[in-house]
């Protein structure tokens, strides 16, 4: 398969065959395996940027990968703040990278 997958491992052995499914990230189709999380499926396809910071617009991807940091939050079927690292993929799942805030609220700080 693709070079980002660890299909064979010297200690764990080879991956058993899993069902191929398709997910959509910002309307682009990506191949995934059943059992992937959104984050692992997208990374396997070379997608690192999962969202942009709502206020500053800087790109973000996974950071902790176990649900602590909320950096990988995406929208799934219209639901906000879904952690890509903890959410298993489903066939035809529609994932969006979220939206930028229209205006900055940070004026008079300090």
């Amino acid at each position: 398969m693709n070079s980002m997958r660890v299909d064979n491992h010297p200690v764990f052995g080879s991956l058993e065959k899993r069902k191929n499914i398709t997910i959509y990230f910002d309307d682009q189709p990506y191949a995934a395996y059943e059992g992937d999380t959104i984050a692992s499926a997208l990374l396997a396809s070379g997608v690192r940027t999962l969202r942009c910071h709502e206020d500053k617009g800087t790109p973000r991807g996974i950071y902790c990968n176990i649900g602590h940091c909320f950096e990988c939050r995406v929208r799934v079927h219209g639901q906000n703040t879904v952690r890509a690292c903890l959410t298993p993929v489903e066939n035809k799942m529609r994932i969006e990278s979220g939206i930028l805030a229209t205006a900055s609220f940070k004026g008079g700080k300090l």
Partner: peptide, 25 residues
């Protein structure tokens, strides 16, 4: 430096620690 303040005051003044992760990071 300006307010010689506690972590709590830093949080309230800057919003550091008030995002979706709840300051865990």
């Amino acid at each position: 430096e300006r307010y010689q303040c506690s972590a709590r005051e830093v949080k309230l003044r800057t919003r550091a620690g008030m995002g979706p992760c709840g300051g865990r990071t």
